[in-house]
Design a protein around this nucleic acid. Structure first.
Lengths: 196, 196
DNA sequence: AGTGATTCTTATCATACATCAATGCCCAGG
DNA sequence: CCTGGGCATTGATGTATGATAAGAATCACT
């Protein structure tokens, strides 16, 4: 749990004594590729801090198609914030794209850490605001940009994921079909070799 | 400022004495239809609480097209949260869809209210979480739903706005052209009159 | 009331992207 | 090894939505 420890101590600035107390509240778990951590309809009772590996959250529409909402690799927290915060059934699934080790964080942990540490509160606040900023950018891209632009933006923002994640998942994240993404890539390859 | 007063006293549960102190921090302003409150590139130094009337926030792409991010009518707060929180230049515009009366809220107000009142902190937290939930739903719709479904969802969620806002703005919010929205509406009208 | 500006509709044509289907690739498990 | 199930690519074709343009309707301001 080195990453999680570092997250608490460095990022959220939790002191050693408080750390010892908090660490008892969380549990560690190894997840196999494909294993499902949250299903639509359930209430999201844990947030998942990714020690290593890769998670994704996604919805499934009436036609059975998946639409990826979020990827989370090392040091990211994957969760359905709304479900966890409001205690409502989630409409997301969360599963593992790779074999993954996670730290399970429940609301008890969050509350206690918030009480103990103002810098944790602060860090949490920043995380929320970042989430909003990120979502807003994504909405704007979905409203205004072509598949190609969205893909280029994705590569730039997540060069690591571009390599680790199968293309059909990237397509799903971008809101296009795998076939379309394949074609977009082909075009981009052409452009980059043709000097003009 | 009845609505704003009610918002502070009832929703955020601010006591009278504290209210008197806080109210000095805000300013009241009447905005004409079309007036611009925030421009892309500026830092968003105020959030706008809508007493009455209607605001919108939107981006403008390279082709000069507007893409509406948010509407805000009575009792809503319109802002670029990211810009305000992180002190970064915004990429949004905010202007008035109707003649509007707003209360200008700056970060000083937020900080002070947060210090004074735990229920204000709490209310603020809920607002953030609601924002995230709302954005996530919108992302999911943009990823998965047709223009028609998105429009129906909009009507259901904002029956009032559907009447007050010109259609081309709704189209912009939905990520389609006004012409497409017109077609969608025509089709919906047909369906509703044909029993089958 | 009149006139010009916005907004909405309708029609035609254009295009980005989806769908369907076939092929080849890779590599995981017997 | 071989073999089968994901995955990526490619081609043919379909469709929802965009672009353009024109007319009709509505609104706003003198």
């Amino acid at each position: 749990m080195q990453n999680f420890t570092k997250y608490l101590k460095t990022k959220a600035n939790i002191a050693e004594s408080e750390f010892q107390r908090l660490i008892k509240k969380v549990t560690f778990k190894s997840i196999e590729k494909g294993e499902i951590l949250l299903r639509s309809g359930e209430i999201c009772r844990h947030s998942f801090f990714v020690e290593n590996g890769l998670l994704r959250s996604y919805t499934v529409d009436e036609a059975g198609k998946e639409h990826i909402i979020q990827f989370g690799s090392e040091n990211w927290i994957v969760s359905d914030r709304s479900s966890a915060f409001f205690n409502e059934p989630s409409d997301l699934f969360i599963d593992a794209v790779e074999d993954t080790q996670v730290v399970l964080i429940n609301s008890e942990f969050i509350n206690e850490a918030s009480e103990i540490s103002s810098s944790f509160r602060n860090y949490n606040q920043i995380a929320l605001q970042n989430h909003i900023r990120h979502q807003q950018k994504r909405i704007n891209l979905l409203l205004s940009a072509s598949a190609e632009r969205r893909y280029m933006d994705f590569i730039k923002l997540y060069p690591d994921l571009t390599l680790r994640v199968p293309q059909w998942m990237i397509a799903s994240y971008l809101g296009i079909t795998p076939e379309s993404l394949s074609r977009v890539r082909k075009e981009l390859a052409h452009k980059n070799f043709k000097p003009n």
